[in-house]
Amino acid sequence: MIPAAPWMDWSAAALSVRLACSCVFLLAPLGIALAWPLAYGRFRGKLLLEAVLLMPLVLPPTVLGFYLLQSFGPRSPLGKLWEVITGGTLVFSFSGLLIAALLINLPFFLQPLVASLGGVDRRLLEAAATLGHGRISTYLRVALPLSWRGLLAGAILAFAHAIGEFGVVLMVGGNLPGRTRTLSIALFDQVQAFELGAAHRTALVLLSFAFLVLLSTAWLRAREPR
């Protein structure tokens, strides 16, 4: 007799949530630092920087995954360095998965934040300057607080996308239960194993979650005061 499939792959769900939380936690300082030059900077190569940072939006995840796999491998400089420092490998590990998730989710975090920052009244930034505040202080005390909706929308989008990412995770992390098997990969497994009941439940959870996320970001944008 075939053993009944569990109601849900709880370890995969826990891993997905852990990955998404760590990802957003690390993205916040990185994204806040990168959003400034994108929103207000005037320098050569700004378009290039924009293109590179936003690339994961259009790049097939497997392509990014392939290059990450290459650069994380135990024979690559990065992989060797990582092994010297931590004693483990980057590929097929949670750390590798997290680095991949950071890269691929950065544009989801950045886009709403940069749009919000761009909408801040320039006179407010000028007023802060005439009151003795330099660029960094003006950014942190005026521009960023006034863009909190964009910041929150970016965080939600990145979180949601990190929960559901499939291609890069499969390429870099493989499918190790409890270590790199996330919900969307569990769904793939369930379908492969014809556990359609479990697959339905997993899919429905991911679907409702995505719907809630889009609803909340749309609500945030609609309330942006301008």
């Binding site: 006179r123 000028e126 007023a127 802060a128 300057a129 005439t130 009151l131 330099g134």
Partner: peptide
């Protein structure tokens, strides 16, 4: 830069 000049501005 503007923030070093100590010039007040009322918009």
């Amino acid at each position: 830069p503007a923030h070093c000049r100590r010039v007040g501005y009322v918009f």
